[in-house]
Design a protein around this nucleic acid. Structure first.
Lengths: 339, 339
DNA sequence: TTGTACGCGTTATCAC
DNA sequence: GTGATAACGCGTACAA
């Protein structure tokens, strides 16, 4: 009823008002002025609900991430938002921590037109039932891009943007080995996190390549939280032959590890080296400043979002996995192995 | 076109399918079964776009916050999401850091039916033009609740949920005064943050009450970032008569301050006490663990969100300001004043 | 209890 | 360049 009101007031048809809003260059200047005046007078704002309905598009994108308030994701999201603003999308965030949704619930968001696409920045259970939905839905799968996380076989058909976590973790491990460390502990994430699996694999690969043994008790679960990492660290420190270095699958856990090592009266890095992964902003001001592996977070966000938008707009269906470079950042929490 | 398909397949009318979805009790069991079968067979998912359009409701809520990846906001958002899930809303996040929108852009989201309401967890520029829009829009203002932040006069008409920042900061300051500190520095936030203004006021009030002078150079801007706080701290340390204690308007800045004090070769808390505000999860594992003022973050999120939903659903227009309790958490970063 | 038919506000497809 | 009008898919008043 509203575009009609404006149209009547301006003495034009609704079609013209619509054109004025969406492709003003198709409207003669004189008409444009009439319409503009009418819009200003009424304070008219187009009803987005109706517009989306008509266009069959929500301009909403769901970003699925493990937990908001993750300092690393902040940088990624900055990149995501940049592209979203540029291309006119809004971002709907779902975290997998507070809510335990399964994958279908996310794909449903697209099939039921609540969102146009999904940017998956978290590990979640694989395709499951959604696979069955390929038929009815008409399209094979919803527009979906994976950022950060490694891909399970089920999801390997989708485009992705991430660092090579295996290689990066291997680099970090090799760095410790070069410092003379032989007993290196690894604090991994949750069991279902493919990402931390990959990092663990990189660690194991590097150890193996250097012909160093990995005792089973050296690899401990840290649940990707400070608390979990603190527990894990205490376990490592109680070992008869405790590690001289601890590699944490992310910085959040490394900060917890740092605390517990110092709490136990040991010095970092003289007694134990600690390194992390992600280079969050707290790494630099940790005590001692944390050696870690940096990812180009904002770039990952930007590129994955861009590819998602392309997929939505049907411009590309390039399903290639895109790898961005990582970088070892050496700070004070790592040093030569003791003795 | 889709509800029709289901209806045809089930041999009923579209109205019946619609009823099946929205008020199943109005449908006879036998019919229900037919419809259910048809829905399962087709994999039908109702078009949310059409539904929202028809209902005139988006079930979307915009949460405006200073910056995602703020560890404190994570807890607040947990509370927000809890209520959102319960009541069937989705959350659309806008941060004021990466994007600089003004207030009108947020109210427009509601007026143009992109969202049902606004939860404001950040200080932003006051009403401005939106005030003018009261007429045409029909309603006085969009559903809006303030969480965390203090309110400017323009926004005082809206419901709010927060701690008493003035009183809390006064408590923290008094605590330092009791420890014998007389020269207490304050690192404040951005000039336009009402929140940190209030905390600064609490600090000044407490100093004044204790008949202690506040030298102008003791109050420094820290921009609400680690970097800013580090700069501010260096300034304070260079003072001829440097403070024996530093009160930071939030923990993020306190972590930066902690780093710089140690960097300068001073000991915390023996030479300088440092306290923060918010009790983020990194406060406990800081070195030394940070004394701070805790807010019931999740509760703030939950209550403010609940009030917003009530406002949207027209259940209440209680515009009272709700105050939740704060709590001083004493850890190792604060001690008696030196000498 | 179920079916028919209309309208929500916008955009797109035609003619003119 | 502009206007008339038919969709878009769903909910609901009303009739049966």
């Amino acid at each position: 009823m509203s575009i009609k009101k404006v149209a009547k007031l301006a003495g034009v048809s609704t079609a013209t008002v619509s054109r004025y809003l969406n492709s003003p260059e198709q409207v003669k200047e004189k008409t444009r002025n009439k319409v503009r005046a009418a819009i200003e007078e009424t304070g008219y704002a187009p009803n987005t609900l109706a517009r989306n309905f008509r266009r069959g598009k929500t301009s909403l994108i769901v970003v699925v991430l493990p937990s908001i308030g993750d300092p690393f994701l902040e940088s990624v999201m900055r990149g995501v938002w940049k592209v979203a603003d540029e291309l006119g999308y809004s971002i709907l965030i779902r975290d997998t921590q507070s809510n335990s949704h399964d994958f279908d619930e996310y794909t449903d968001l697209v099939f039921s037109k609540q969102a146009d696409g999904i940017l998956l920045l978290a590990s979640i259970s694989p395709f499951g039932e959604a696979e069955a939905r390929r038929g009815p839905s008409g399209q094979a799968h919803p527009p979906l891009v994976l950022g950060l996380e490694s891909v399970s076989a089920e999801l390997s058909q989708f485009p992705s943007v991430r660092v090579d976590n295996v290689a990066a973790a291997a680099d970090g491990t090799e760095y410790l080995i070069q410092l003379g460390h032989k007993r290196i502990g690894f604090i991994t994430g949750k069991p279902d996190s493919l990402l931390t699996h990959d990092r663990e694999k990189g660690y194991r690969d590097a150890m193996h390549k250097a012909k160093l043994n990995v005792a089973p008790e050296w690899v401990v679960e840290g649940e990707q939280t400070i608390e979990g990492a603190r527990r894990a660290t205490r376990q490592l420190l109680e070992l008869e032959q405790r590690p001289t270095a601890i590699f944490c699958a992310n910085d959040e856990m490394a900060l917890g590890a740092l605390y517990e090592v110092k709490q136990a009266g040991l010095r970092v890095p003289q007694d134990i080296s600690v390194i992390g992964f992600d280079d969050i902003r707290y790494a630099e001001i940790a005590d001692p400043p944390l050696t870690t592996i940096a990812q180009p977070a904002e770039e990952i966000g930007e590129r994955s979002m861009r590819r998602l938008c392309e997929a939505i707009e049907g411009k590309e269906n390039n399903t290639a996995a895109e790898t961005v470079p990582h970088r070892l950042v050496v700070r004070k929490s790592s040093a030569n192995a003791p003795k």
